[in-house]
């Protein structure tokens, strides 16, 4: 009985992240539009877009291979699994032991691997541009993420997100290293989600695109699945930051329905605040030059390294 309930809660989490992800995108677009003194589309617009895309026929380039057709599903699946393993409204869910933070990072790495390959499949220059830039940024963003994980794990004594979240609730401490890790994680999140100083999700300029360039040849249901995966990724990163640095209000495994509900409400609140702050930052900054991004993300790597070093050093006293 307990097992079935545990699996049920895990299932709810999986469905919930999937259901909320497009809404999060809609919310960020709405906030951005309001900040730019525009009305903006409805928050529900991404749902309508997805529906419209899946109903359309998919147009495939003549020389598209099986990889091009299957990659969207693999990208979606790996991202979804990763998103489902991040504690959102509740910590310590049944399957959260399946993968720790390093494995979640690597799962996103798998999604990126397939996306970059899909970008190269048709053989247009734009796909190549996107893939090559994406892999360049990833070469620094991934180690930065690992160093941030190190920092967090050294404080909390675990790379398991549930354990980390519970540790942070129980021993809420202000640590220099955690501050550094937070800044680093924000930089990584902006990079990974193709947000403004690194990439522009709203751009129409093919030559400046990163994420959009890779999916330029996708259409119909394939595009819908990839867009959904991108939305899931944004949700994942905001949830991740909330889970590590602001885990309060999160339900525990043995909490009742009420506790879970409180968890859900606070989680949605955190998502809204997180995405609002992100959009605020985006509005105030221009996109970087491509070769300034490695310095930006390299900064995150160094912050992670610095945080780890500080912890390694302070352990001795």
């Amino acid at each position: 009985m307990g097992l079935i309930l545990a699996i049920l809660v895990q299932g709810i989490q999986m469905v919930l992240v999937l259901a909320l992800a497009p809404g999060l995108i809609g919310f960020t677009r709405k906030v951005k539009a309001r900040l730019l003194r525009r009305q903006g589309p409805s928050i529900l617009q991404p749902y309508r877009d997805l529906l419209r895309l899946v109903r359309k026929e998919a147009v495939l380039a003549d020389n598209a291979s099986w990889l091009f057709r299957n990659a969207p599903y693999l990208i979606f699946a790996t991202t979804w699994v990763a998103a489902a393993l991040v504690p959102t409204f509740a910590a310590g869910l049944h399957f959260s032991w399946a993968a720790d933070l390093i494995a979640i990072t690597a799962l996103l790495g798998s999604a990126r691997f397939f996306l970059a390959l899909a970008g190269m499949d048709i053989g247009t220059s734009f796909g190549g541009i996107g893939s090559s830039r994406e892999m360049l940024f990833a070469t620094l963003a991934e180690p930065a993420m690992i160093m941030i994980v190190f920092t967090v794990a050294l404080v909390a004594g675990s790379t398991q997100l549930s354990t980390v979240a519970e540790f942070m609730v129980d021993h809420s401490t202000l640590r220099v290293s955690l501050g550094l890790a937070l800044i680093g994680l924000i930089i990584v999140a902006l990079t990974e989600n193709a947000r403004v100083p690194v990439d522009n999700p709203a751009t129409h300029l093919e030559l400046t695109m990163v994420h959009e360039a890779m999916i330029l040849e996708y259409s119909g249901r394939h595009l819908a699945v990839i867009e959904l995966a991108a939305a899931l990724k944004l949700l994942l990163y905001i949830s991740l930051i909330a889970c590590i640095f602001a885990p309060w209000g999160m339900a525990r495994q043995d909490d009742g329905v009420l506790g879970m509900l409180v968890g859900v409400v606070t989680w949605v609140g955190k998502l809204a605040i997180g995405s609002f702050l992100m959009v605020l930052f985006e509005t105030a900054i221009a996109k970087m030059r491509v070769f300034r991004v490695p310095e930006f993300v390299g900064g995150a790597l160094m912050l992670g390294l610095l945080g780890t070093l500080l912890l390694f050093v302070s352990r001795s006293f």
Partner: peptide
């Protein structure tokens, strides 16, 4: 400015 993704300037 908008081509540098600084949409605020375009809006104003």
């Amino acid at each position: 400015c908008n081509d540098a993704a600084f949409a605020l300037m375009l809006a104003h």
